[in-house]
Amino acid sequence: MEELIKVKNLNLFFGSKHILKSINMSIYKKSVTAVIGPSGCGKSTYLRCFNRMNDYNGAKIDGEIMLDGEDINSKNTDVTKLRMKVGMVFQKPNPFAKSIFENVAFGLKIHGKLKTYEIENRVEESLKSVWLWDEVKDRLKESALLLSGGQQQRLCMARALATNPEIVLLDEPTSALDPNSTRKIEDLCLELKGKVTILIVTHNIAQAARISDYTAFLYLGELIEYNETKLIFTVPKDKKTEEYISGKFG
């Protein structure tokens, strides 16, 4: 498998608290990588390193995250361009209080340069890719807040996909959803990985097993084990991993 991102000796501190401890890990192109671990292990914070969303909470970071041969933590990185390449979907569906169309077009419009018909095409394409097009094509001008929770979350995925990112970060995207909507998002991940790399944080171990190709187990800020999902779930090397996936703690 081809590498998209390489994390080298990543450490993160909030004040004197050492949250992420010397993480080394590769993320492979066009695959689904799951990050699992008990609450408070730092998995969401870790995810936010990949699009520099920790810039706003006073975190101190050292180590490298290489994407396309550049360290995204470098001072020269243009975070607005980085975030076009690295999309994100959050735990709670958070569409803007704008129309369905404007939500998906948001990323395209703020970066400018595209003509109206190009934006329209991309919006349609993105909505189709998250299987939302047929449900909303007649009501693109309606407020996105009128959609159901599951639809909103897929809209957020469409919004993240509209700028054609190389990787999408999913931060527990189904934790606020009902089982049916969850199922849809999971199926969607499997479908989308042909086009885009997916890094998903989940507290749902079964979900990681169902949809991911690689699984990383994070515990108290340390990367305990990282391997192909089928190996992690059948022959874990570390005792902690085994205990966690068999439900002994967490």
Partner: peptide, 13 residues
């Protein structure tokens, strides 16, 4: 804050 976060994550200044 959700809204700000969403906009920032899409590359908004």
């Amino acid at each position: 804050f959700d809204f700000r976060e969403a906009a920032l994550s899409l590359g908004a200044t």
